[in-house]
């Protein structure tokens, strides 16, 4: 058998309260279910082996509710390779053919929903955007580091969302035109200036890669600072608002925490120059302080 699927769970607490007859029936049912499952897996594994080319995945497993998975472990999956197959494709194949409890977030399959940031062979990547053929085997797939694991590859995103929302992440201006059909003008240069910062898909790969964020839970982190950059540099918001944004960013757990290690920039799947944006905000903050000095 090519996978290490947990044995069927014996639920001891409920077993105590049911009749021996029912226990026996349940036991039979479980055995039958297990036989079917084993047969299915054997067939899938056989099929996988008969293909010329398979990829060996080692996938992190954990489920606080399932006794066999309470202690984190790695499962091996052998997935038949097709040209162009991504890490996400391979995970879906493994789930649909070997183990339906294999759990990971995913949706758009095209690097825009930001659901499937994973730790693949030791680096933060989007599963859908990572070609298997670019990876050494076995391909080790883990949940994002520095976040609590909910189950298998799913991590708790709440902290990331909290940081994103801590920077007043919405457009604010006092100079809106009066007419509901009158637009604010923006120069092409200014739109170009903020363009990269608007590409963030909230995947949290950057936050996961950041040593500072790992050590300081209150640090805003690269994504949130980038979100603030997106508005601070937008000329439509005006100078007053920029002051206010710089004040938020200058707080104890803001831009000055960054030690320019560039790990966020390296892992960003949308190629956003995060470290540069943080550095630029530091410079703006200094200029700003000099003005009042």
């Amino acid at each position: 058998m090519s996978t290490q699927v947990p044995e069927q769970v014996e639920d001891e607490s409920s077993a105590e309260s049911v009749s021996p007859g029912k226990q026996k029936r349940d036991q039979k049912k479980r055995e039958r279910a297990q036989r079917i499952q084993e047969q299915r897996e054997a067939e899938a594994a056989e099929k996988a082996r008969s293909e010329d080319d398979t990829y060996h995945l080692k996938v992190f497993r954990y489920d606080p509710e399932v006794p066999e998975k309470q202690e984190p472990r790695f499962d091996d999956f052998y997935v038949p390779y097709k040209q162009g197959m991504t890490v996400l494709d391979a995970l879906m194949w493994a789930r649909d053919h070997y183990d339906s409890s294999l759990t990971f977030r995913h949706s758009c399959r095209q690097a825009i929903c930001g659901s499937d940031a994973l730790f693949v062979n030791g680096s933060q990547r989007l599963g859908c955007k990572t070609q298997l053929s670019d990876l050494a085997e076995p391909v080790r797939i883990e949940p994002l580091p520095h976040a609590d694991v909910v189950k298998d590859l799913v991590v708790d995103m709440e902290h990331f969302y909290d940081q994103m929302e801590a920077v007043e992440p919405y457009f604010q201006t006092n100079s809106l035109p009066d007419g509901e059909l009158d637009e604010q003008r923006q120069t092409r240069e200014n739109r170009e200036k903020v363009k990269m910062s608007t590409r963030c898909i909230w995947c949290s790969a950057c936050m996961s890669s950041c040593n500072i964020a790992a050590g300081d839970n209150e640090y805003l982190g690269p994504a949130a600072i980038n979100k603030a950059y997106r508005f601070a540099m937008d000329e439509r918001e005006g100078e007053d608002m920029k002051q206010r944004r710089l004040e938020i960013l200058e707080q104890e757990h803001g831009v000055w925490r960054c030690q320019t290690q560039f790990s966020c920039t390296e892992v960003c799947p949308k190629d956003i120059p995060l470290t540069e944006h943080i550095q630029e905000l530091k410079r703006e903050a200094i200029k700003n302080n000099l003005k009042f000095w």
């Binding site: 604010q184 003008r185 923006q186």
Partner: peptide, 23 residues
């Protein structure tokens, strides 16, 4: 559609821009 589209602009949406600064 026109006023709803401009509403998005007023909410800060980063539309591509012409040389004169319009969307």
């Amino acid at each position: 559609s026109p006023k709803e589209t401009i509403k998005l602009e007023h909410w800060g949406m980063a539309f591509s821009r012409d040389d004169d600064g319009r969307v």
